[in-house]
Structures are given as structure tokens and as C-alpha cells.
Design a protein around this nucleic acid. Structure first.
Lengths: 186, 186
DNA sequence: CCTACCGATCGGTAGG
DNA sequence: CCTACCGATCGGTAGG
């Protein structure tokens, strides 16, 4: 694990626990036994560190969606697979996903615009998937965008309350949300 | 509108836009044409100001739930009414609800514990409502708590993306979420 | 409700 | 990768 990776994962943990603005570079440095100014050998600024974390998160999410829907030709199966990919993302990258959903206001204007664009790109994937089912005559949803928001919001909760030692296993939740999502569209 | 109320609503707007930690008392004071130190004639501290906003939000939400379910004897109708009350809350008090869902880590330990207790109290109302339907034999949900999380998460999204001038009116959304919530339980 | 001011902390730089 | 240090800003107090 490179120093840059160490910094990034320490930052994710602290931003998750305290928020970006409440976290100092000194705290990040302390976690990996460095002095705060030494961070600047690896990062450009605190703001850029946040941007890298957030862009990485949304890019991975978009890739995972594409991989998921490529695994089947059936429209409902595609929907189930896409929902399950989102669930797994919010569970396995819980802290990063939480930071991503929570720190948009902390981004500088330019980076915020770009991030919002990439998040819209994720939502567009869902809208097009649902619309393809409508065109094919197997889905009757009259509001693909609203349904998309509902699916994303529903799964977003996981990054807040999911616990690895909680009462529901990852596989239980993947199955539950997969079923629930499909049921919203039949 | 009293000075205290002016301070509180200016604070809600700024905490919504920038977050608690990124907002200075000077900015709050500027919004209502005061100097920062003058705020201390009305508030105890910045932290206490946040606490008042958050406790007020959750207390109102709990009251609204109780009022909603008292309006019908039918279990599915109670569920529909409770969901619609939550939707209206997240729309009409959008900014306060957003702050409430976002600033839990910014609370001091003691206040955070108390707030989490009151949020759990809200979730308990849902769990008991669903369980009463299970006891009566009209609902088959095997996971009342998971379903409760799903309902809350689903509606929480509104405090993030709802726009008064957006493409869905409040009444359209109230109807949509009411239907969706009931459908999760039949 | 104001001005004047405090100690603390912050992100970041200089220089080695 | 470190020590030493900077200017800026913060929440909050004193005193009127």
C-alpha cells in the first residue's frame, strides 16, 4: 500500500467519522504516523484529496453498473443485477459512499459541477435501463426518473446504517434489495 | 418573528448550504444584519444552536407521526398516512430535515446520544405499526425493522433533491410515496 | 447591541 | 520527511 493510498484511506475514515471540515490535516497525518506538512509530498491540497476520493467513488460506481447490466439480456434481470451492484457498493465501500453522499457542499464550485455531472450520468444509466423496458412493453413505469431516485435513495441508506456485524448479512441484503427494486417496476 | 427565530432560520439555511462546520457565526450574523458577538445575547453557543435545530426537527416529526396514524383505524390507511406525513415533513421542512440527517456527527457526544435515542423512537413507531399489522394477520412482513429503514431511507431522499419548482408537485409526491410504501407491505 | 480583543487552530510554505 | 513558522479565521469574552 503506497503512502498516497495510506493517506487516502485514512482520510476516508476521518471524513466518514467527523466530516471533511471537522477533520484537520494533522489528524490525518497522526493516523499514519506522519507530521502534517509531510502530507504535501503526496497531496496537492486538502481539497484535492477530497476530490480524488469522491471522483474515484462515482467512477467505480458507474463501472460497476455497466458490468452488472452486461451480465444478462433479460430486462428485469438487468435491473436486479444493477440494484445488487449498488447495494454491494454501498456496503463494501460504505465509508467512501457515505462521504460521497455527504460532502458535495464541501467541494469547490468547479469540482462540484463535475461531480454532479458524473452522478447524473449514473442516474441516466438507470433511466435508460427503465425506458428500454418501457419501450419493450414489459414495464409500465410512467416516471423512470422518479423511480430512479427512489432506487438510489433506498440503497443510499445502507451507507449510513449498515454494520458488518449487524443482523443482516451482505447476501441477505443483496437479495432483499434486488427483490424490492424489481417489485417497484412490475 | 423573534430575534431567536431569525437566528435559528438563518442558521438552518446556512447549515443546509454549507454544513455546520463550514458555517461561521459571522455568516449567520451577517444574514440578519447583526455582529457576531451580538448573537450571544440570544444563543448559548454555536453547538447549542445546532442542537436546538435538530431536536426541534425530530420532535416535530414524532408528533406528526402520532397525529397521522390517529386519523384512521385501518392498518394500511395508517401506514399510508404515516408515510405521507413523512413526505410532507421532508418537503416542507426540507432544509431542517437535511441538516438533521447530515449533522449527527457534528453533535457533542451527549446530545448525539439523545438525538439518536429520539430517532430510534421514531423508527420504533414504524416497527410497532407494522407489527400490529402482522399480529392482525393482514401483513406478512418478516422484517419490520428492515422495512422501516427502507421507508425512512426512501423518503429521506426528498430532503436532498426535492425542488418546489421541480417537475413533481408536493401532492403528486405525497400520493406516489403513499402508494409505494403500502405496496412494500402487501 | 456594539467595538475591541483573546487564545487556539487551521491549511499551507520555507528551507533543509 | 522534519522543524519552524506564517497569515487568516474561528468561537467566544470583556466591558460598556
Amino acid at each position: 500500500m503506497s503512502r498516497s493510498d495510506e493517506i487516502q484511506s485514512a482520510a476516508i475514515e476521518l471524513f466518514y467519522e467527523q466530516g471533511y471540515n471537522a477533520t484537520s490535516l494533522k489528524e490525518i497525518a497522526d493516523r499514519i504516523n506522519l507530521r502534517a506538512p509531510s502530507l504535501y509530498n503526496h497531496i496537492e491540497s486538502k481539497q484535492k484529496l477530497l476530490q480524488d476520493i469522491m471522483f474515484d467513488g462515482i467512477d467505480v460506481l458507474n463501472s460497476e453498473f455497466d458490468e452488472a447490466v452486461a451480465q444478462s439480456e433479460d430486462i428485469f434481470e438487468k435491473i436486479r443485477l444493477a440494484a445488487q451492484a449498488l447495494v454491494r457498493h454501498n456496503i463494501r465501500r460504505k465509508k467512501q459512499a457515505y462521504v460521497n453522499s455527504t460532502e458535495i457542499p464541501s467541494l469547490e464550485a468547479g469540482a462540484r459541477d463535475e461531480l454532479v455531472r458524473r452522478r447524473r450520468s449514473y442516474a441516466d444509466r438507470w433511466v435508460k435501463l427503465i425506458e428500454s423496458g418501457v419501450s419493450a412493453g414489459v414495464i409500465v413505469s410512467s416516471e423512470p426518473l422518479l423511480t430512479t431516485f427512489n432506487i438510489i435513495d433506498l440503497c443510499a441508506g445502507l451507507s449510513r446504517w449498515y454494520r458488518p456485524d449487524g443482523r443482516w448479512s451482505e447476501e441477505r441484503l443483496v437479495a432483499h434489495y434486488g427483490r424490492l427494486t424489481v417489485s417497484m417496476l412490475v
